[in-house]
Write a protein that binds this DNA or RNA. Structure first.
Lengths: 242, 242
DNA sequence: CCGGGGCTTTGACGTGGATCAAAGCCCCCG
DNA sequence: CGGGGGCTTTGATCCACGTCAAAGCCCCGG
């Protein structure tokens, strides 16, 4: 194989993504002037080192969070061993919504590499929601959207082959970068193979084999965590065919 | 085996469950006197015949629904064939939350047997939320709770063996009946083996084999869709061991 | 510059669960 | 009462994917 020649320009950005506040899902709440107690509902900015947890499952949930730079994974552990990554959080996403019902987090949020997050206390969310129907609706939308995504993800794990799950993952991650103004076809993976495996319900070994096969077919080019999607059409076709 | 003797009393209720309105998740909104346009936000009661769809994925979402009697399944279809049952809805649950963000349903809701549902138009939910902080919070809780459940479910499919998934399913379904005032250990399954399989990410054939094995070990007794959990302790132990 | 540990790849092998197929059963409907 | 279709069970077989293991690579720290 031509594995050793420099087969493509490793995409530069986004390695450590950073979105403008305008692209943040919580932006509407952030700039609301209807918040009585403070000009911005953001109470704190927190910095996390790689591997550090923003919160842990079982701990009380006081806040929701918006990553500003860097990436997180939302990890759900199952009693009896085995852990699942519910989702990866990019700048502009919201973390901690699942604890909103009971006041107890149901998952861990762990930093993939150093990152910085805005913290918005739950009581501020409540206040904002109560003072502005618009924000209230916005927040309901966030929750409902996350719910729909989670159901789609469960469905994907339950009824797609390993190969298709991986294709879906790559295409959707590309789409998320695209929505943030970056390339949908060339980006860096912020997470390890093992993390991806735990997200998709497969092992790192199987994932690695499949990725090698994709490269052999010319569908993608990868070196280490840099990805370039070379034949998006083929990938989409594979997903759609029955 | 003693497969032919009448080994247990087939549990009577709940075959066609019916919860008091007091146990309904939407009850707080239902009896609110703060709703301007009507004494009750319930606009319609709909009756569905077995197999009939309450709504379909892709269709516009105007309402949320609360089953009063009978059961529904929430079905997510994947392009490229294959369908997943996101959850089963019992009386007291809420259907249609996933369409709340975009106004488009992301799943089908299909009646398992005849059933009756209350329909609450989305705009009434909005109005109620905007007039009562309590209801607004209640509704956020519903959404967040559903989200947490969905993430747990995805995790279960991704990292539990088939055997454990089935055990989990039986125990949780029992718990849901218990919360509604019925027995946690003797109940009727409202859905087919195939539906259960599509919910748990396995085939009806495998499911049937596993259930037979459970019976052989004396953990459960089943005939047709009647279940009796005979050794809940063993089931819990199986789930917890690593 | 060197050593160590974690990530990644790859191979060999075993197996859990899917698939295909057939038979029985139940229930509905005529 | 009799026929038919869908649900359920069970068997035989296969293969996709997990497991175990070894080796390479990269990065970091000394």
């Amino acid at each position: 194989m031509d594995a050793m020649n420099p087969m493509f320009e490793a995409p530069r950005p986004p390695t450590r993504g950073r979105v403008a506040c305008g692209a943040c899902a919580l932006n509407p709440m952030c700039h609301s002037r209807s918040a009585p107690p403070a000009p911005s509902p953001v109470e704190t900015r927190r910095r996390l080192a790689s591997g550090e947890a923003l919160f842990n499952a079982g701990s009380p949930s006081h806040s929701i969070f918006a990553p500003r730079s860097g990436f997180l994974k939302a990890r759900v552990a199952h009693p009896g061993g085995g852990t699942h990554i519910a989702c990866f959080l990019l700048p502009g996403d919201v973390a901690g919504l699942d604890g909103f019902a009971t006041g107890i987090h149901r998952s861990d949020a762990v930093a993939l590499g150093d990152c910085e997050v805005c913290e918005i206390p739950s009581y501020r969310v409540e206040i904002l929601s109560d003072t502005s129907p618009r924000l209230s609706a916005h927040f309901r939308s966030l929750l409902a959207e996350e719910l729909a995504r989670s159901q789609q993800h469960a469905a994907a794990i339950a009824c797609l082959s390993v190969e298709r799950r991986i294709v879906l993952f790559l295409l959707e991650l590309g789409k998320r970068w695209f929505e943030r103004g970056y390339s949908a076809s060339a980006f860096q993976l912020p997470m390890s193979r093992r993390d991806i495996g735990e997200h998709l319900g497969l092992t790192a070994a199987t994932l690695s084999r499949e990725l090698s096969a994709f490269q052999a077919r010319g569908w993608v080019a990868m070196q280490r965590r840099a990805v370039e999607i070379r034949d998006a059409h083929a990938l989409h076709a594979l997903l759609a065919e029955r």
